[in-house]
């Protein structure tokens, strides 16, 4: 097989990574943008989403699609509620002080992780995909009869992977619509622009914060539910999404949602392609190097604006 089909295959795998990463990172970016809170526990909300998805799928039983759809609804709601409760009981009480927030969310990280270990255990468990047909992908070449299609061996994807990419796209458009078109989006953007003025114009900032923290965590949980049929749920699975989300959010520009999505696609695709051709470790090294370069030469990120 020539190089082309390999690149296509790697890009498809990368696109799945990118889709899930975009959802997770947009959650992180939303929280940072509106609340100026660096949420170290974000990866654990991702992990919780996957673990809850497994519990739900086990409980519901029946056709895999039933359990999966139930998980798709329940996991983000439960994780969002847990996050909102954490915001009201912990972050609000330390007044969103930047340093103390970081320490508090590190604490939250370990609490969630160890509680999961104590209840769910150290095993990695799969959730069955609702549908999973193998799709062969055609490739073309210049043969004796000119331009012709054929199906190279090994070049395939599954319907579920394509569905993950599609679902992530739909959710991202939904987040954008919420921010740009709805009343609550307007209140969030006003709070992001100037917290004190938001208060001076009757916006219940505390409630906006709890909601934003909940939505941010719910997005991570949703991303995890989407990936868990491919990756399995495990109590330590939050570390990679956390690192990659921070990489994406820094490259894209802190608090810039379009920048986050573009950076997620870039990092996701390059992670997929470099992992296939070289090694996953090299992909992480290059991504982290890129963060270093961005921080040195363009601290506000590719799409960020300088702090107002």
């Amino acid at each position: 097989m020539e190089l082309g089909p390999y690149i296509l295959l790697a890009s498809l795998e990368g696109a799945v990574t990118a889709a899930v990463l975009a959802l997770t990172a947009v959650g992180l970016s939303l929280v940072f943008g509106v609340m100026r809170v660096v949420n170290i526990a974000h990866g654990e909300f991702f992990m919780l989403g996957a673990v809850i998805a497994w519990f739900v799928a086990q409980t519901v039983g029946g056709h895999p699609a039933l359990g999966f759809v139930a998980a798709l609804v329940i996991a983000p709601l439960v994780v969002g509620a847990i996050a909102a409760a954490a915001d009201m009981t912990i972050l609000k009480r330390i007044d969103y002080d930047p340093e103390r927030t970081i320490v508090a969310t590190i604490g939250l990280l370990y609490i969630i992780q160890q509680l999961t270990l104590m209840t769910y255990g150290p095993e990695a468990r799969p959730v069955e995909a609702p549908f999973n047909q193998r799709l062969a992908i055609p490739w073309f070449e210049w043969g004796e009869e000119g331009f012709e299609f054929y199906f190279p061996w090994g070049l395939s994807t599954t319907t579920y992977k394509l569905a993950v990419i599609g679902a992530a796209g739909v959710v991202l458009v939904g987040v954008w619509l919420m921010m740009a078109r709805t009343r609550i989006g307007l209140l969030m953007r006003a709070t992001q622009a100037d917290r004190d003025m938001a208060l001076a114009f009757g916006i219940p900032v505390e409630r906006v914060y709890a909601l934003v923290f909940g939505i941010g965590a719910a997005l991570a949980a949703l991303a995890a539910v989407l990936i868990v049929p491919i990756q399995q749920a495990h109590y330590l699975m939050g570390a990679d999404p956390l690192l990659l989300s921070f990489i994406v959010v820094i490259i894209g520009g802190l608090g810039s949602l379009p920048g986050t999505v573009v950076a997620a696609i870039f990092i996701g695709l390059s992670d997929g392609i470099i992992s296939v051709f070289f090694s996953p470790t090299l992909a992480k090294i290059l991504a982290t190097l890129l963060v270093g370069l961005v921080l040195v030469f363009r601290p506000q990120g590719l799409f960020g604006t300088r702090a107002a």
Partner: peptide, 9 residues
Amino acid sequence: QGRRLFSGL
């Protein structure tokens, strides 16, 4: 003071 409009809006 300084107007403090909601920038971006």
